[in-house]
Amino acid sequence: MQKSFEEALKHRRTYYSISNQSPISDKEIERIVDFAVTNVPSAFNSQSTRVVLLLGENHKKLWEIVKDTLRKIVPSEAFKSTEAKIDNCFESGYGTILFFEDQRVVKDLQAQFPGYKDNFPGWSLQTSAMHQLAIWVMLEDAGLGASLQHYNPLIDEEVRHTWGLPHSWHLIAEMPFGAPVQGPGEKEFEPLSERVKVFK
């Protein structure tokens, strides 16, 4: 990481205007994903997160699936703007990272530790969120812009079928990324006094 952790976290933003270029190699993108999956913590060391990296035509295929799926349920007059956003903000990028949680792992832990049964689904989502943030920050630090999207569960079955993924893999989020074309929008912050309490 070129920046300090604090700097990288501060500069992580949502980019909707991205191109199909990358300032780093595919191998370096894979290294970022591998590093996060190896080192991000999980409850009970469950390692339930599964990540799929889509590049090239596979990246484009995902967003065609999204459009084909939405075309069936979104009114035609509204679909035009939806299609334009997908084309110009997501499919226009260099790649997409899919985040899954393996429900087989979650169910196995529920069986092994029945006293925590109700907690494991929530802990699984927390694990996924940490993976999403870690990868997002590292992509940003490498010069890539990204955003986090949620077209699941509408596309889940088609995604699993297209890439031959196990049925136990539950899609959580999609992260399109690419070289930023425009800067992110302004970000407003709620007062810390309303968000953080300190007792000494």
Score class of each variant (00 low, 15 high):
Gln149Ala: 07
Lys27Gly: 08
Met175Trp: 05
Lys3Asn: 13
Arg50Pro: 01
Asp102Met: 04
Lys200Ser: 12
Ile155Lys: 00
Lys197Phe: 00
Phe189Ser: 13
Leu192Val: 07
Val159Glu: 04
Arg160Met: 08
Glu157Tyr: 00
Gln103Cys: 08
Phe177Cys: 09
Ile29Trp: 04
Val137Phe: 04
Phe5Glu: 13
Leu9Ser: 09
Lys10Glu: 13
Val74Asp: 04
Pro180Ile: 06
Ala179Arg: 15
Ala142Asn: 00
Glu158Arg: 13
Trp123Asn: 01
Lys67Trp: 02
Gln149Ser: 06
Asp26Thr: 13
Ala111Asn: 11
Arg71Leu: 09
Lys27Trp: 00
Glu190His: 12
Leu53Ile: 04
Phe90Val: 00
Pro184Ser: 14
Trp136Glu: 03
Val52Ile: 09
Lys80Ile: 09
Tyr116Ser: 10
Arg160Ala: 13
Met138Ser: 10
Gly164Tyr: 07
Pro153Ser: 08
Lys61Met: 07
Leu70Asp: 01
Phe99Lys: 03
Ala78Thr: 11
Thr127Lys: 04
Phe120Pro: 01
Ala134Phe: 00
Pro23Phe: 06
Gln112Ser: 13
Glu186Leu: 12
Thr38Glu: 15
Glu101Tyr: 07
Glu28Leu: 09
Ile172Met: 07
Val137His: 01
Ser46Glu: 09
Ser22Tyr: 05
Leu53Met: 09
His59Asn: 03
Arg13Pro: 03
Gly93Ala: 07
Asp26Glu: 15
Gly185Asn: 12
Leu125Lys: 07
Gly95Tyr: 03
Gln149Val: 04
Leu171Ile: 06
Met130His: 11
His150Tyr: 12
Asn88Leu: 08
Arg160Gln: 15
Gly122Glu: 12
Leu125Pro: 02
Glu101Met: 11
Val33Asn: 02
Asp156Leu: 05
Gln132Thr: 09
Leu192Ile: 10
Lys60Met: 00
Lys117Asp: 00
Glu174Val: 01
Leu192Tyr: 08
Asp141His: 05
His11Cys: 07
Ala134Val: 02
Arg160Trp: 01
Pro121Met: 03
Ala129Glu: 10
Gly143Asn: 04
Ala8Lys: 07
Leu55Cys: 06
Leu98Tyr: 05
Ile86Ser: 03
Ile172Cys: 08
Asp118Ser: 07
Arg160Lys: 15
Val40Cys: 09
Ala129Asn: 11
Ser46Ala: 15
Val159Thr: 06
Glu28Ser: 12
Lys27Ser: 14
Asp87Ile: 01
Leu165Arg: 06
Ser19Arg: 02
Val33Ile: 14
Gly115Arg: 11
Phe79Gln: 07
Asn119Met: 08
Val66Cys: 00
Arg12Val: 06
Lys197Asn: 12
Glu57Phe: 00
Ala179Lys: 15
Lys107Ser: 10
Ser25Thr: 15
Pro166Glu: 11
Asn88Glu: 14
Gln110Lys: 14
Ser168Tyr: 08
Ser17Pro: 00
Val51Ile: 14
Asp118His: 09
